[in-house]
């Protein structure tokens, strides 16, 4: 059970949108996390540079805030097997489908890309069905 946080979530979302805008206006790149991580496989060195800097910020800034202001609430119900299965599906699926929640869900929809709108509808729907089956459909 988690509490509804409309203000924090909207402001947090605006920061995410601001990050996407900044990366586009400064580097001309889409802030899609799976795409940026995936680009490190076999990328030329000058490409890898900005991708690594972005990932350093993505991982470093929350760590700094967690150290300064306390750990955020993180509840992970899934066990090891489920985490591995989920990770493999997320990794393979986001590369096959050319994007994840950030690249398709935020940047793509903001660009009114029909591919991204379709992908977002599909992964939202299959995620919702998966949660439903896991929580309500398996005799739980």
């Amino acid at each position: 059970m988690t509490s509804f946080t409309p203000v924090a979530s909207t402001v947090g979302g605006a920061l995410i949108g601001g990050a996407a805008a900044l990366l586009w206006l400064a580097l001309g790149r889409i802030a899609g996390i799976s795409g940026i991580v995936g680009s490190l496989a076999g990328a030329p060195r000058d490409e890898a540079g900005w991708a690594l800097a972005f990932l350093a910020g993505l991982m470093g800034a929350p760590l700094l805030v967690a150290l300064l202001f306390g750990m955020p609430q993180i509840e992970i119900a899934a066990g090891p097997l489920l985490l591995v299965a989920a990770g493999l599906l997320v990794g393979f699926g986001t590369r096959l489908g050319s994007g994840c929640t950030s690249g398709h869900g935020v940047c793509g929809i903001a660009r009114l890309s029909s591919r991204s709108i379709a992908a977002t509808l599909v992964f939202m729907a299959t995620a919702g069905v998966t949660v439903f089956v896991m929580r309500h459909g398996m005799g739980g």
Partner: peptide, 22 residues
């Protein structure tokens, strides 16, 4: 710029609650 964008993105995920799978 990439570092700043990544940091902003990470802070947004943290503040919004997206980092909590629950």
């Amino acid at each position: 710029f990439a570092l700043a964008a990544g940091a902003l993105f990470g802070l947004g995920l943290l503040l919004s609650g997206m980092v909590n799978p629950a």
